[in-house]
Amino acid sequence: MITPRSNSRAASGPRSQKARIAAVLAGAVAALALTGCAGWEYRENICGGGEYPVLAVGSTGSACVSDEEEPSAGYVRYPEGKVPREVGDKWDVYWETHTLDENGKTVDVP
């Protein structure tokens, strides 16, 4: 025989659960709006997977080379520890105003 449930459980039924989910979602939306989506910043890699960045000698030009190849004539690897990894990172910005001369010395862009 099936016994009817008491009304005291009705408050924790589907409507109440939907109300809680709606409240949680509203809170999440409010938190995102107040923080400006902090921490959700998109960062673009300088090169794709299987590649590394190289610098054009005497200018701020750059390119990406396969991990299995050496740089073409006129390009060199960035100095160790000064390799840009993401667009706008510390070294990407640095190499906008600096380059390497034909002797491998770091110089200001002429």
Rank of each mutant, 00 (worst) to 15 (best):
R9M: 07
P79N: 02
S59A: 05
T97N: 15
W91R: 01
D92C: 10
R15L: 13
N45H: 10
Y52T: 10
Y52P: 02
P71F: 00
R5V: 13
E86T: 14
P79V: 00
V87E: 15
Y75P: 05
S66G: 08
A38N: 12
R9S: 05
G13A: 03
A33S: 11
P71W: 01
V83H: 06
E51Q: 12
R43D: 09
R77T: 06
G36D: 15
E51N: 12
E70P: 04
R15F: 11
C37W: 03
K18D: 13
V83W: 04
A33R: 09
V29G: 07
A19C: 07
A30Y: 00
G49M: 08
A11S: 07
G81N: 06
G48V: 07
W91M: 09
S16I: 02
G13P: 00
L55H: 05
K18C: 10
S62Y: 13
P84H: 03
L34V: 03
G88W: 00
N45F: 12
D92S: 13
K90I: 13
D67C: 05
E96P: 00
G39Q: 02
C47S: 04
R77I: 03
D92G: 12
L34D: 03
G27M: 00
S6F: 05
C37L: 07
A10I: 14
G36L: 14
Y94R: 00
E68F: 15
D89T: 03
G13F: 00
A56G: 11
G81D: 10
V87M: 15
G36K: 13
E44D: 15
G81K: 05
L32T: 04
P14L: 13
D67G: 04
A73K: 14
V29F: 09
K18P: 02
N45S: 15
P4N: 11
V87N: 12
Y42K: 10
S66D: 08
G13S: 03
G39R: 03
C64G: 10
E96L: 13
G39T: 06
C37N: 01
A56I: 10
C37I: 02
G36A: 14
V83C: 08
V76F: 05
R20Y: 04
N45C: 09
V54P: 07
C64T: 08
G61P: 01
V57L: 07
K18L: 15
A22G: 01
A22K: 01
Y42G: 03
W91D: 09
S59Q: 03
P71E: 02
P53D: 07
A38L: 10
A22E: 02
G74F: 15
A11Y: 08
R77S: 14
A26I: 06
K90G: 11
K90E: 15
V54H: 09
D89P: 00
T60F: 09
I21V: 13
E51T: 08
A30F: 01
L34W: 04
A30D: 01
H98W: 02
E41K: 14
A73D: 15
A26G: 12
Y78K: 11
R5T: 12
L55T: 01
P53Q: 03
E80R: 10
G13N: 01
